[in-house]
């Protein structure tokens, strides 16, 4: 029945992306540079530090926010990552995760606050977030590569698309969960909108916002392998290499590194959120 009447969306999208690439590539290249700057800075910084310092910082943070058990675990897992020969890759991955999470936070928290305070904005935002979370990454990898070329920055961009929704959603939820009486009390004492936000809503929503941050970090980590498909470095590259060359051992070692990083970052941020 539909054989004769197919809407040529595929053609339109291809033409649209081609048009963007042909005429506006410089704009996208310019958009790249703040991300590139942040990412390269983090990557070089982390890789130039002596592993001992990085391990010590993680152990101290773990000890401060959680306790001796997490501190021991973080030392053990990071030493293991080093012994597996993954230290440089893991620092690159950490830099990519940090860069995406920083950008996600800078964008996601304000968006979440707007969504939390306006039903309209929330209603408009929701399908966009749904699309970001459910669209398979492979769909947007190609246009990203066409516009931003391959490499770590393209990987971070793909990661941002996938990891942004949780922090927006949970910030909005946190703001909405603040007891209306508290907002009313602040207003009764002459709080402006901005004061209500800063002195009541954000402090009250903070645990929920941090839970969103934790989710964003975990989702950013889960994009490591996919990002490696478009030339991003880090722990994903041994996995992708292993896949391409049927090197099972190499892929497993890379996967192990990702899992260890994920557990470590998850426990650490969760204990931070509890404090």
């Amino acid at each position: 029945m539909f054989e004769e009447s197919v809407i040529p969306v595929d053609v339109w999208v291809s033409q649209f992306v081609d048009m963007l690439v042909d005429n506006h590539r410089d704009i996208f290249q310019a958009m790249k540079w703040p991300i590139e700057y942040l990412l390269n800075g983090l990557d070089m910084g982390l890789n130039s530090l002596h592993p001992f310092i990085v391990i010590a910082v993680f152990a101290l943070a773990a000890w401060k926010f959680s306790g001796i058990r997490l501190a021991v675990f973080s030392v053990a897992s990071m030493v293991l990552v080093g012994l597996l020969g993954l230290w440089e890759d893991s620092m690159t991955t950490l830099a990519m995760v940090l860069a995406s999470v920083i950008i996600c936070t800078l964008m996601g928290v304000p968006l979440g606050i707007l969504a939390g305070r306006s039903d309209r904005f929330e209603a408009g935002m929701r399908p966009v977030l749904d699309a970001m979370q459910t669209t398979p990454a492979f769909v947007y990898l190609v246009p990203i590569v066409m516009l931003f070329s391959v490499g770590n920055v393209a990987g971070v961009l793909a990661t941002i698309i996938f990891a942004l929704p949780p922090i927006v959603r949970l910030t909005s939820l946190g703001i909405r969960q603040v007891h209306p009486e508290l907002v009313e009390a602040a207003q009764a004492f002459g709080a402006t909108n901005w004061q209500v936000l800063r002195k009541v809503q954000i402090p009250q929503a903070l645990p929920t916002i941090l839970a969103g941050l934790n989710q964003t970090i975990m989702m950013a980590l889960s994009m490591v392998v996919i990002a490696a498909l478009i030339g991003a470095g880090g722990l994903g590259s041994p996995v992708v290499r292993g896949l391409n060359t049927l090197d099972i051992g190499g892929a497993v070692v890379g996967g192990l590194g990702i899992v260890l990083m994920a557990i470590l970052l998850d426990r650490l941020t969760q204990s931070m959120a509890r404090k």
Partner: peptide, 21 residues
Amino acid sequence: LVAFRRRNMSMVFQSFALMPH
């Protein structure tokens, strides 16, 4: 209105409405 609320009136609530943080 904000100035008026700060200067002239304050309010006490049934649910206390204290800031837990």
